[in-house]
Design a protein around this nucleic acid. Structure first.
Lengths: 148, 148
DNA sequence: TTATCTGCAAAGCCTTTGCGCAGAT
DNA sequence: ATCTGCGCAAAGGCTTTGCAGATAA
């Protein structure tokens, strides 16, 4: 599929979703979203800011943060790192996986034996040395579900 | 297996590893490690600090942070959240997984079709509403491997 | 005794917030 | 015309750092 075309489609969809959500289609928002949709590098807010500045030199970092928050709250964007807001520690060095509540960030252990073996079919990027694999099962715990 | 006994074993092993690594076996370190080894809750540094304060009221939060860093660097402890240090964004809302370089934190997409289907065999904790599953393949990218 | 570690306090990110003006609907 | 969003700057968390005294080897 034509990448340019696909991006165009995604921008159209974005515009439409903004209308539906009652979000103003500002120039800043379009450029910020375009920067996000144009890469698979999973950028940081700072990286988006640098990218957007090329087109809107007067943009402020605060605006980038505000809109990233707005987009994620609206479901237009996702955080790769669900647990990114604070350091969580694990003294269990054995192989195991985790079950995470996306609301309260509670983490439960999942023994490796309880998960079907995970294997990559694809050859890795050239020279990538794979060390281990960690599965995150995401959802909402009973307590958080009860609290609506 | 007796939990009490297991903890004792882990403390002995910790003491031994400290010796091997040339790390001083201070009272603070023992208590911090004990707090980490005694829970499966994947605590934050702040939570460890609160726990350790019960036994060492004069402990400082800085000491807890320094030792957590020392332990992780030494391989005695692991971070659950490899990408916790900054927000990483993903405009691709379709199901897919990620390949992450643990050194430079580069993130590559892995299409869901390239991974064997992941399934939990175990019944979930009561009332947990599972939403999705995200696999992190961890390793070292070619560039970082080349840079030693 | 010597090197390392601790507590304290300050500094450094990253991110959020408040406010008045500007822009979208 | 009204409401929302933007830029600016300040404030707020979390984490690291520097230093002098204390502790482990």
């Amino acid at each position: 599929m034509d990448v340019e075309h696909s991006l165009q489609q995604r921008m159209d969809l974005f515009r439409q979703r903004c209308l539906e959500l009652g979000l103003a289609c500002t120039h800043q928002r379009m450029v910020i979203y375009k920067a996000l949709a144009s890469t698979t590098a999973h950028p940081t807010p700072e990286a988006i800011y640098e990218q957007v500045k090329r087109e809107i030199p007067a943009i402020s970092l605060g605006t980038v943060y505000k809109n990233i928050r707005t987009f994620t709250d609206a479901g237009l964007l996702r955080e790769v790192s669900v647990l990114h807001d604070s350091l969580r520690l694990d003294a269990n060095l054995g192989d195991h996986h985790h079950l995470v509540c996306v609301r309260c960030k509670a983490i439960f252990d999942v023994p490796e034996t309880e998960v079907t073996p995970v294997q990559l079919r694809e050859p890795l990027p050239d020279g990538f040395r794979l060390e281990r694999c960690s599965v995150l099962f995401l959802g909402v715990c009973a307590q958080c579900a009860a609290a609506q």
